[in-house]
Structure formats: C-alpha cells, structure tokens
C-alpha cells in the first residue's frame, strides 16, 4: 500500500459519500443518472467476489464492504425512497446501459488475467468502471442540471482518478513485475471519460451561473 493509493481510495469513498449525503439531505436526485449509479454498484459487486475467499488486509476487506454498501445505498435511495425517487429524471436517463454491460462482459471473456470465474468478473468490473460514467455524461448533456452534482463531488472524483494513476506509476518504478495492464489501460480510458464529464460539468456550471446572474 502506498500513500497515493490510500489517498485515492479515500477520495473515491468521499466522492460516493458526498453524493449519498447530498441526495439524502436534499431528498432529490435531479440530474443524477440512476443507470451510472447502478453500474457502479455492479462494478463493486463483481469486483469484490473475492471478499470471502482472498484476505488481503483488514483495510481491504472493510473498504470493500463500505464501497458495496454505499453504492447500493445510493441506488436504493433513488429507486425506493418515496421523496427522492419522484425527482429522478426517468425520461432523460435513457442511456441503454445493458449494451455496455454486455460489451464489457464479452471483452472480459476475451481479455483477462486468468480464465477463472473470479478473474473474468474482475476484468469485467474493471472495464465496466471505465464506461460507467457514460449514462451520467449523457444525462448531463441533456439536462444540464448540476444541482446535485456538487463541485466537491467532481473534485474528489477527479482526485481519485489522478491519485490512482500516480499510484500505478509509483508501483511500476518501485515494484518489480508490477503488471496490472488491464487495470492501468482501462483506468486511463476511464480517466479520459471523466475528463470529458468534468468538461461538460463545468460548461453546465458556467451556463447555470450565468443564467442565475441574469
């Protein structure tokens, strides 16, 4: 474990908690894509299949449970909470994410580290996390609503990606044979898509602020 990865995990967790608290506090999820949040929950559920079989460290096991619980809590809030679910942009959040899930699964069947049940699902979760932001990006382009996507959320999400890339560079130079190419390449694609999301986020933010000022 290095400080970059620890900080990356913390900023990732904080971004999820910021979103959960924002939805719970305002009892609104306007502008938030349920499909992206479902994909994130699926990412954690398929990546942490080794929760009960491989013990890496207490930190690792605790964080897996926290990520699964917090991502499911957001999905539950948006689907079941009587007040929150009313504000969901159902007719705008129409990205057909099932095709993305299928494409990632096929890719995982072809490209993985070992052809075992857990490894195929691990690769699937890595690919899926890279593209999970797409429904949110599409919804943001359509709705331009950044009310619930706070600046802090975007900031911590960006910090998570940046710190993980530094972590990979650090591990590449300090550990012999650090070769998690699937995670690194997919992570770079994910970061590029996040950069696109951040671009549209700030455009929407500026547009919203301008309208507010007029």
């Amino acid at each position: 474990m290095n400080i970059f990865r620890f900080a990356g995990d913390m900023t990732h967790l904080i971004s999820i908690l910021i979103l959960l608290l924002k939805i719970y506090a305002t009892k609104s999820c306007a502008g938030i894509s349920l499909k992206t949040q479902e994909l994130y929950a699926l990412v954690f559920l398929t990546r942490y299949l080794d929760l009960f079989t491989d013990y890496v460290s207490l930190y690792n096991s605790v964080m897996k449970i926290v990520f699964i619980a917090s991502s499911l809590a957001i999905v539950w809030c948006m689907r079941r909470h009587p007040l929150v679910r009313r504000s969901y942009d159902k007719d705008l959040d129409t990205f057909r994410h099932q095709y993305v899930v299928l494409a990632c699964f096929v890719l995982a069947l072809v490209l993985h580290e070992r052809f075992t049940f857990q490894e195929v699902f691990w690769a699937f979760s890595i690919y899926l996390e890279a593209v999970a932001i797409l429904p949110q990006l599409v919804l943001l382009q359509r709705s331009g609503n950044v009310d619930n996507l706070t600046g802090q959320y975007v900031l911590f999400l960006g910090a998570y990606r940046g710190l993980y890339i530094i972590n990979w560079i650090y591990r590449y130079f300090t550990e012999d044979h650090f070769a998690r190419w699937i995670a690194c390449v997919s992570g770079l694609i994910q970061t590029a898509l996040y950069a696109d999301f951040f671009y549209y986020y700030y455009l929407s933010r500026i547009k919203q602020d301008t309208i507010m000022r007029l």
């Binding site: 474990m1 080794d50 691990w122 998690r180 995670a183």
Partner: peptide, 10 residues
C-alpha cells in the same frame, strides 16, 4: 506465477 496473487487494489 505472479498473477496468482489476489488483487490488492480496490
């Protein structure tokens, strides 16, 4: 071989 190690990254 090396890849037998469990994934240590979250």
């Amino acid at each position: 071989p090396l890849q037998q190690r469990p994934h240590d990254e979250l």
